[in-house]
Design a binder for these strands. Structure first.
Length: 156
DNA sequence: GCCAACGTTGGC
DNA sequence: GCCAACGTTGGC
């Protein structure tokens, strides 16, 4: 019995890591997530092969710029153990890691950016609970339903 | 660069 | 367990 493919949206600041960077490297460990809700989505929800909408945040304009796939199940984020890392967490131990990450593989760039304001214009169809268009939501990893996935990509 | 919204921390 | 202070996110 095979599990159904799930869909996600992952935010990245293009100054730090853009869709072009992902295209260049092919596969990237999605380290540095330090929010429990986002961690739980990666650790408990993501399966190899899941679809990812790659979103550029903190830029002009913010929006969905590409598609990636989840390359493996979550494993302990190595940056939490690295004293030299910005993401070092003194409370994390090898026995009890706090933070997890998946690897993400480039699939394709969209033919154009789907900007946030255009996504917002479809808030009714996307639903109140869609974290991307929820006021004040800062979640950097969030689930996307099949219907939302199809609607968003139909805007391309 | 500003700042609203939100999550986390830690004193009590 | 409350909640003020603080840090971060991310649109603008």
């Amino acid at each position: 019995m095979s599990a159904r493919r799930r869909y996600w949206l992952m935010k990245s600041e293009p100054d730090a890591f853009s869709i072009d960077d992902l295209q260049r490297v092919g596969t990237e460990p999605w380290t540095g997530v330090r929010n429990y809700q986002a961690r739980n989505f990666m650790r408990n929800g993501m399966r190899t092969g899941d679809g990812v909408l790659f979103y550029h945040s903190n830029c002009t304009p913010p929006g969905i710029v590409g598609i990636a796939t989840v390359a493996c199940e979550a494993y302990p984020d190595p940056t939490q153990f690295d004293r030299a890392s910005h993401y070092f967490d003194p409370k994390a131990t090898q026995e009890e890691p706090r933070w997890f990450n998946v690897d993400v593989t480039f699939e394709r760039k969209l033919s154009r950016i789907i900007p946030l304001d255009e996504i917002r214009a479809h808030a009714d169809e996307l639903g109140e609970e869609f974290a991307l268009v929820k006021r004040g939501s800062r979640l950097s990893v969030l689930p996307v339903s099949a219907a939302q996935w199809n609607l968003l990509l139909s805007l391309e």
